[in-house]
């Protein structure tokens, strides 16, 4: 079921990370993004994994939810792994046949690449999408980027667009499912045939999906207009962002932990 897709989905719960200020979470996310791509030593990766597990516990994310977040990305991770295994030719050759060469070093590098991708997904989920509602996230981005307003960057509009886009992910996923079912019952087959045919099959899904997205966009625009939306000026907030000592402390602590991971990694090289 496409509407059960959980990338970008919010997970309603009361947890430490849910209540942490979204600005702190956004900054932490950036910090961890850098850390994930800087490290390559297994021990550093293990430490990072430990930290991420702590974050998962702080967010009250159950293994089931974690799995449904990771699952759709597994094929991509596998793809990245295989490509890297075949394309890296340094190190001791483990296996060689015609043009295929597999090296021990290559497997190690490929594994790191795949693991990085998984970290990327888990961090995005636990720090942002699972624990932060799109509206809060757009509030956070609006605040963080508000200095850009001076150079006429429409920060409010961009954050509003983002939160609406996220809000419509489940709606459009359900719609895609519906369109595919309707076309399947008219004889469409998305699973067999050549690659080109499969792509062609999806085009007939995308056209009605686009048309309906425009229709939805039109209707939503009218509905927002009717509710007196006129951009960011003069708007108030039901739940204004409030940063307290705990949020700052959380931010500092996890930043230090990320730095520690990087230091461990560099010292092992």
């Amino acid at each position: 079921m496409l509407d059960k897709i959980s990338i970008g989905r919010y997970y309603p719960a009361h947890s430490f990370l849910h209540e942490t200020d979204p600005r702190i979470k956004t900054i932490l996310y950036a910090v961890y993004l850098v850390a994930i791509f800087m490290i390559q030593e297994p021990i550093a990766i293990a430490v990072l994994a430990g930290i991420v597990i702590v974050q998962l516990i702080l967010a009250k994310v159950t293994p089931g939810i974690l799995w449904s977040t990771i699952k759709p990305m597994l094929p991509l991770a596998l793809f990245i792994f295989i490509i890297n295994v075949f394309s890296i030719r340094q190190g001791d050759v483990l296996f060689s046949w015609k043009i295929i060469t597999i090296t021990g070093y290559g497997i190690g590098r490929a594994a790191i690449m795949a693991v990085r991708l998984m970290f990327l997904i888990v961090s995005t989920s636990v720090l942002l999408t699972l624990t932060t509602t799109p509206l809060k996230m757009s509030d956070a981005l609006e605040k963080l980027f508000s200095p850009l307003k001076i150079i006429k960057v429409p920060v409010h509009e961009m954050s509003m667009m983002m939160s609406i886009a996220i809000r419509f992910i489940p709606t459009l996923a359900a719609e895609t499912d519906k369109i595919m079912k309707a076309q399947q019952s008219r004889g469409a087959d998305y699973d067999t045939g050549s690659f080109i045919n499969k792509i062609k099959g999806y085009v007939t899904v995308l056209i009605p999906l686009f048309v309906s997205s425009f229709r939805r966009a039109d209707e939503l625009a009218v509905a927002m207009d009717a509710r007196c939306y006129r951009g960011g000026a003069g708007r108030t907030k039901l739940n204004p962002l409030k940063m307290n000592g705990r949020d700052v402390l959380t931010g500092i602590l996890f930043t230090l932990l990320a730095a520690l991971v990087v230091v461990i990694d560099f010292s092992l090289r």
């Binding site: 919010y10 509602t133 509206l135 939160s163 996220i166 809000r167 209707e219 509905a223 927002m224």
Partner: peptide, 9 residues
């Protein structure tokens, strides 16, 4: 109903 809801919560 779907096309007039702005908020996630």
């Amino acid at each position: 109903p779907d096309n007039q809801i702005v908020g996630t919560m």
